[in-house]
Design a protein around this nucleic acid. Sequence first.
RNA 1: AGGACUAUCGCCAAGCGGUAAGGCAAUUGGCUCUGACCCAAUUAUGCGGGGGUUCAAAUCCCUCUAGUCCUGCCA
Length: 540
Amino acid sequence: MEEIANFIKTIMANDLESGKVKKIITRFPPEPNAYLHIGHARAIITNFELAKSFNGYTNLRFDDTNPAKEDEEFVEGIKKDIEWLGYNPENVFFGSDYFEETYKLALELINNGLAYVCDLTQAETSAYRGTLTEAGKNSPYRERSISENLTLFENMKNGLYKEGEKVLRAKIDMSHPNINMRDPVLYRIMYIKHHRQGNKWCIYPMYDYAHPLQDAFEGITHSLCSLEYDNHRVLYDWVIEVCKTKYKPVQIEFGRLNITNTIMSKRYIKQLVESKKVIGYDDPRMPTLAGMRRRGITPEAIKTFILSTGLSRINSTVEGDMLDHFVREDLKLKVNRIMAVTKPLKVTITNYEEGKIEYFEAFNNQENESLGKRKVAFSKHLYIEQEDFCLEKPDKHYKRLALGLEVRLMNAYFIKANEVVYDNNGNIIEVLCAYDEQTLSGSGFNERKPNGTITFIEATTANKAVFNKFEPLIIDDNEEISFLERINPDSWKTDEGFVEAGVYNTLDRFQFIRDGYYAVDSDNSKLTFNRIVSLKSALK
RNA sequence: AGGACUAUCGCCAAGCGGUAAGGCAAUUGGCUCUGACCCAAUUAUGCGGGGGUUCAAAUCCCUCUAGUCCUGCCA
């Protein structure tokens, strides 16, 4: 936690030391128009941890200045996610609660000749603005008198004009090299019911005007935001200056976080949900915090992941492996490690009695015995992973089953493969094996070493789990949404896997450890492992 | 008359004038009733390129190059 965002931390420490601020106060200001995703976790954690490290605090403020996009559903979802991450905001505010004050300040601006009502249409405004390389030109309405502006703005507020007919603009500089300073719009007219204000207002402040004021009203000392607002900082400072606010917040930008093979944009997330490609914002495959929560990822894992990715003024794209690592690291002692088979291969124990079933005890987690034990079934009919068998041992590193070789079935016996059965197309569909009774797990047998240990499932008691309902989601190069397998296509397309009986139903969360939902490495070059899977029973 | 920002190992990222931290990934070996975990070891004479200042530069200066963002009455 010490290393978080050093470049920001240094600024804060200096401000504290110089006496510029007495206490560090930050804020996390989501617009309630979507659910939070893993990318937002960076902003949340950075804001909260930074303030906490200086004994300051953080406000949660819903940036709801555009009623066209916002909804109550999202404010509840966002609150829940933030609390889940372990943060209880000192205060919860809504940008819309400051509408009265921002309005009064706008009047001040007009009185000081710093704002005017403009009648240009949207297209005209755009044309007058100029381009990246050419200066803009002044609006013909720029020189209206203060009293006229006051009247017109009053009328705007009172609903005398149609949407788009008039806007309030700041009077700055139409030839400013930074386009954001070319008389930016401060207020626009919208006849839309606000989720909190109802129909009280028909003029709504723009982000560039409202945000710095909200920060100032709350005494925010450091206003952290992402890189794309860098170009807005000069306007942010302008607003703070001309409004003569008591507090002078400072905006600091940092890079966004992206994760490879992960959909992170609001737009796509929304599209997935609305097209019903996924169950909802909390679908376990989603990169939303709600989805990750449902998948069984813990807030601790997210926190250590975010903190370890660091923070800089670069939009970074970290590899999904890194997220996986921290999730595994966090989960490895917390979850049950049950057995599962995703691509089943039938195994018949030829020297085992037909109809007999034995149950062995196994720790739910070998590294954490406090998680208790469970029964593991064994009989003449089993399934193993297709990849755990091949006809001939390919090299000395191969530690699984092959014809003539003996392996340990985890928690059970040694078995030796003697024969294979083929289907009409020449595919191996079954392996005939013999078990050795004296090699039972826990018996202390050590007269010979098996060629590795593999997992298995007893066929008659196994629960089926539909894996293809949880295909990993990625976006292909054309940026069209598709359900491509992240990796080994076969393991997810062949529809069914098998999860050990008994354990599957007792879990109430979609927990996973790497291969549970990713199956094998992306290049399929190496199997890494823990075939540990559990699925949410409600989604059967 | 364009402006702003960024550039350190495959991916993140420390460093802020004193001779390149760490994590992920990878590789090698050991251990193992999960090829997991764990343990040990390896991985930038180099900090986008070129100049310069200095006893000393990733760190300062100049210059070039590349990438990102900005022309919503979105945030």
